[in-house]
Amino acid sequence: MPSARRVRLLMMVVIAAVITTLFFTSQMRSTIPHDNRTVHDFFGKTMNGLGSQQGSGQVVMSGKGTTVDSTVKDKDGDGSVDEDDEQLAKEMADRLRAAEQKAKDLANAKAPLKPDSPSEVIGVGSSAGGQKKGGAKGSSKEDEDSKESEEDREVEATLNTILKKSPVVIFSKTFCPYSKRAKGVLLEKYSIDPAPYVVELDEHPLGKQLQARLGVKTGRKTVPNIMINGKSVGGSDEIAELDSRKTLIDKFKAMGGKQLSMKERFVGNAKEKQE
């Protein structure tokens, strides 16, 4: 069995050998260039995996250690987001922008957006509304005015034609009791030559417009409206009053002149009284 002195000596020799070995190996490592890419790749991949699990919204690019937006994905399938993936993402974005611009150019070529020439626009703003040549507001108002003028001319021409039908014209409505009363007196109690011309406004295509025009022309807006040579005698009440006073024939002959002949009929007697 070795003595304690020998054991201690052996341990010192071993320790000295280990220290010497570590010293020389450390000197050798300091002279060899150190490649950090392996460490960085491992660190980058580890952080990338942790980021995808925790949803941090950022990834670490291997080889650089810099952060990029989460829209950059592993394009080349090497298990990490690196410079190649960033380059692929950039190229794809450039292609998308080019395609979008091409689509816009094609759309503009088919329907180019051209401003109105100064000659087409007279004014701008609310005070100039409807002043654009051919504009919707101006055209609509002009068309409406033109339509009203054309209708007015048509109504006036129709009324003049009706008044020429006979010296006596009765403007009436089929359902109106006052019109029936006036027509009963004039057409049944009296014989008028030429025969009165009756216009039923509720059956005439321009009846409403004709009644409105008669209201302006004669001041009487209701029916019946009895006209003699274009002048109004009145309505049902006026005819009934003249008849009761025995002055109806005189009134009609005074307004109708020589071209109008009027007789009173006697019920139950063939004799007619000539005034």
Rank of each mutant, 00 (worst) to 15 (best):
T158N: 03
M227C: 01
T71I: 12
L186Q: 00
D152L: 07
D41Y: 05
Q58S: 04
G44N: 09
K164D: 07
I226F: 03
F175V: 09
G125Y: 01
A17G: 08
T46I: 02
V223R: 02
A109N: 11
F171G: 03
G235P: 05
Q87A: 09
E188Y: 15
S166H: 04
V39N: 03
S236W: 01
L88G: 12
T161V: 15
K114M: 08
K104G: 06
I162E: 02
A89D: 09
N36R: 14
G256Q: 08
V60T: 00
K180W: 00
E264R: 07
T46Y: 12
R181M: 10
E203I: 11
G77R: 11
H204C: 06
S146A: 10
V60H: 00
L88A: 13
I228P: 07
K102L: 07
A103N: 02
D84P: 03
C176P: 00
E272Y: 13
E200Y: 05
V18D: 04
M92I: 09
S56E: 05
T218Y: 11
S70D: 09
P167F: 03
K231V: 14
G63F: 12
T158Y: 06
G77V: 02
R29F: 13
G130K: 01
R265G: 00
L186F: 08
L113A: 15
V185G: 05
T174N: 11
A107M: 11
G79D: 05
E154T: 12
P112R: 13
V121R: 05
M11K: 10
R5S: 07
N108G: 00
G235C: 08
R95P: 01
P2Y: 08
P224A: 14
M1L: 08
G51F: 05
G184R: 11
V13N: 13
R8Q: 15
S179P: 15
R95I: 09
S166E: 01
N269W: 13
K132Q: 09
V233W: 01
F43T: 09
G57C: 10
